[in-house]
Design a protein around this nucleic acid. Sequence first.
DNA 1: GCATGATTCAAACAATCGTTTGAATCGCCT
DNA 2: AGGCGATTCAAACGATTGTTTGAATCATGC
Lengths: 241, 241
Amino acid sequence: MPTLDRAPSRGSPETKDRILAAAEALFMEQGYGSTSLRAITAKAKVNLAAVNYHFGSKGSLIRAVFDRRLGPLNQARLDHLRRLEREADGQPLAPEAVLEAMIAPALQLSRDPLQQGAAFLRLLGRALSEPAETMKDVLPNHYREVVLRFKEAFVRALPHVPEQELIWRMHFTFGAMAYAMAGNDALQLIATCDAEGASDPEAIIRRLVPFLAAGLEAPLPTLARPHASHSPDTNTNRQAA
Amino acid sequence: MPTLDRAPSRGSPETKDRILAAAEALFMEQGYGSTSLRAITAKAKVNLAAVNYHFGSKGSLIRAVFDRRLGPLNQARLDHLRRLEREADGQPLAPEAVLEAMIAPALQLSRDPLQQGAAFLRLLGRALSEPAETMKDVLPNHYREVVLRFKEAFVRALPHVPEQELIWRMHFTFGAMAYAMAGNDALQLIATCDAEGASDPEAIIRRLVPFLAAGLEAPLPTLARPHASHSPDTNTNRQAA
DNA sequence: GCATGATTCAAACAATCGTTTGAATCGCCT
DNA sequence: AGGCGATTCAAACGATTGTTTGAATCATGC
């Protein structure tokens, strides 16, 4: 029977963290199912049985990987948003400010070179589209409050956007954020022109926020659908917005 | 020694396709590493050895899964774009038109209920953030021409956007597209308000295109960075765009 | 009708998987 | 010192992994 939640009297101050760090790195670069506990324990330089001793199972391990990062990250997001709202003194925030409250904490995590925060962001970006059995509940549980609070903030920041439309735009926003912060280069889009500052996270946020803000504030789509496809008239060109 | 590329004289008109379909479905709902060949062959109702006989290995199988879908999909995108450009008769396209050329073929694939196109789009959305060893080259090879041609189209559709900035915005655009078309509900964002028509792909495109077009046409970010964070002045609110 | 090549099949291959075990080791307490 | 709980360790567990084998089955050629 492994230890309960009792703090280790003196034993292992770093064994659990070493396992978490190694698992984070390997899950990121190989995926969950393709990463063996032996590869994790080898990278962490701990005994194979240490994983089951400290975490119980492989499934609990990946859950612990996300728990360690997601709690502080989302709390920082909520704190950042609350601070901006207090400073605004009742006035609704600009959409850019709400976006920044969402992105900046992740950026700060990515900045820290000591911890491998960037690796976690890539892992998170992939996990958002992974319906893996093992962490069916962990992401929704961590993000529930964030989604709720930021939806309120966006509703007040964008009063002219109907709520249904806003939810969809938040969906698109989170997608672009996850993709951008995960640093996906699968399409080698960057390589086609070798964009400058690709590795600078702050440059990304400076370009991402205006992009998303403009999308959030876009004019509402027509309810009737003119089926803009293959319409031979030329006024579908230029100056659509 | 398995068969070369020779067309099967009469033997198996459907065994390979059954394997591809089963693999597509299982890779989507379990991930690559977590899906065993036995699970695939069981779902496809073929013999276990059929995978290695027809495809050579598990890695070649997932590569074949993407090859089967990505070729026609991206060709349809290129055709759609070329047709719109011909109809425009030299005039630059609207950004919305270029976006539609990118999205509509995927939408059509998703529509087909006979084939499990929607499942493939979810698989593709996840694969974009998977640096899996097995398909390191398959995605870039398929997308190289698409990225190149659509970049040209976007450059002409958005002449006021510098090329570097445009590349970044295409990056964000593809991220939001992948996320939206993959139907990611990991955050249960939709569930918070149960958005209407969540399952209707055409409704998604009608909301996604204006969102992305506005982002692509957004005013350029300031080159100097005023460090908009925790700035106590209130003019960061309202009317930023 | 029978040889031929492609395909399917049941069975087994070695390897690796996650997990468990029981003894050895460590650090701390009275 | 010595006992005690927490932790580490080497070794093994049965189960499952991807892959291979060789015979059986099929359709087709002459």
